[in-house]
Amino acid sequence: MSTNLGKAHLLRCPPGTSLQDGGRALGANYGIPRSGAMDLHSYHWANHLLKNPSQAVALELVQPGLKIKFEAPCRIALAGATVAVTVNQVGISNPSLIALDTGDLLEIGAFHIGARLYLCIEGGFQVEKYLGSGSDFVSITGTATRATGEYLHYLPTHSKAVLQAKPKWSTDWFEPETIQAYPGPDWALLSADQQRILLDQPVHLSKLSNRMGIQLEELVANELDDLPTNPVFPGTVQLTPGGKIIILMRDAGVTGGYPRILQLSEDAQSRLAQKKAGDSIRFQLLPTH
């Protein structure tokens, strides 16, 4: 790394914090998951505020407790969950876009609404890209998450950053229960009863959820055999032989052998990424085309 880069010191890095961008679209031919921000909507919004290039690398946070010291001036943008933010221990009422100076200490406290926060920095965090992406994935970047004590690198702004715009972030878009989905390739294999169970009642996110997938609490009795292994994508909903419903997320493998019963819309994937264990969702079927 060039010595002209600014450094951000992770004085405290909560578990699950990772670097993410739009993902590794070219990896699937080698079995490499897409990865990238779980909530792309928020990721893109924060990058847009900073006029960042596409694929700018951001921090994805899933827990409070981040303490990060910036050793050169920069602009950052936050989007996703609403959280308590302080700079040098002073609360920031609208933390969408923040200018930071040398030595400034940023702290992220409680998550109020939502499950994932995106911390984007002007120009993006500078990391080695692999197959067009800097997203953390253990077998590609050697680590799945970032750790306390690490430094992240960025392109510093030359003078103290000044901000004109005062954008306001709203979480209205992800708060409703509705999760829109298209019928998956194997939807027609389900009985009318199975389809009804999935559509007529709210279902709940279980604690078994991570960047690979989100398992629901409810079971759908299922007699379907495994199918030949075929492609799956982020947002593919699988039904296992045990009746578990698993919604595949960004780090899921690129193929699977369970029936693929639904395919979430792009927007629904971002909404779902902001839901927590125990939250209810309601699938709404969209026409295929």
Partner: peptide, 22 residues
């Protein structure tokens, strides 16, 4: 086309937009 993904009995095609898929 954005991506072609192979499986045992499918080829999945990810398109830039609906018109090109149609």
């Amino acid at each position: 086309i954005l991506e072609v993904r192979q499986g045992f009995t499918r080829l999945s095609l990810l398109w830039k937009n609906l018109a090109s898929q149609q």
